[in-house]
Design a protein around this nucleic acid. Structure first.
Lengths: 140, 140
DNA sequence: TATTGTTATACTCTATAACTATA
DNA sequence: TATAGTTATAGAGTATAACAATA
């Protein structure tokens, strides 16, 4: 495939991903905001600290403090000072947080599922393969 | 493909589209914000009014007023009262606005292109086909 | 009286700078 | 003196309510 064609493919793929992303976000009834959702997803695979979370999410430390406070007020996580280094705070997801995460996922996926279900098996196979390739692309 | 598998595919596709969307947005050097970019893209295919643009963009009328004012201050568009119905304002993109739009597109697409260029021809073919299917999905 | 657009005001999420506690 | 986290404050972008101009 020529470089020119790849450039066009890149542009069109980027565009369609953005539109899907936008609609899956807008057209759902999520009770949890995107930035909160993203933090809970990180915490679901293990406890962390505010600083680490801020770096992973590409936001400032004060922004993360605020996000964590909001989630804590809703009972989605706990904050505890690390006994080893008492400057540090260990953030841990709660069962309620896991429920919010699950509900958020379900809500977002519903939009996509409604549009996938009417496709042919062949089309789904292409999308499955594309998803695998894109996982590699985004991992870089 | 079983319903269960489709549901999982939907979730994973939605997720990877969001991550791509997020990174293509964050990791670019765009001089134009996403909501401004989106409005200019609409105007590029023809003049419009604040109200229509607000509805297309799913934002309130005052928000659109603000966005338009910002773009106008940067010389990206003009506002003129409609002589037929003097309550209405006709918004038109300028040449400077078209240049911003082009530059914004180039900047966003660059991230994706850098990751597409090292794929095999076969992988690109799958992505091309997937893009076509996803265009249909998002059109609904 | 209804419609189009803007202004007034407030809320949320973001950032940088200043501060506190601990190492 | 350096680091982790929070608080203070300000700047975007958003919304609803109130307003002016026009139909």
């Amino acid at each position: 495939m020529k470089q020119q064609d790849r450039r066009r493919l890149a542009g069109e793929l980027r565009s369609v991903c953005m539109r899907i992303s936008r609609r899956a976000r807008f057209e759902n009834v999520a009770t949890i905001a995107p930035h909160q959702f993203s933090v809970l997803a990180k915490l679901d695979s293990g406890s962390s600290t505010p600083r680490t979370l801020a770096e992973l999410e590409c936001v400032s430390a004060p922004s993360m403090t605020r996000t964590l406070t909001g989630l804590q007020e809703r009972g989605a996580l706990t904050r505890a000072t690390d006994p080893q280094d008492r400057r540090r705070v260990v953030v841990t997801i709660t069962d309620a947080g896991r429920r919010m995460l699950r509900e958020g996922r379900r809500s977002r996926d519903e939009w996509m599922f409604e549009r996938i279900r009417s496709l042919s098996d062949e089309e789904c196979a292409v999308l499955r393969e594309a998803q695998r390739i894109l996982e590699g692309v985004v991992a870089r």
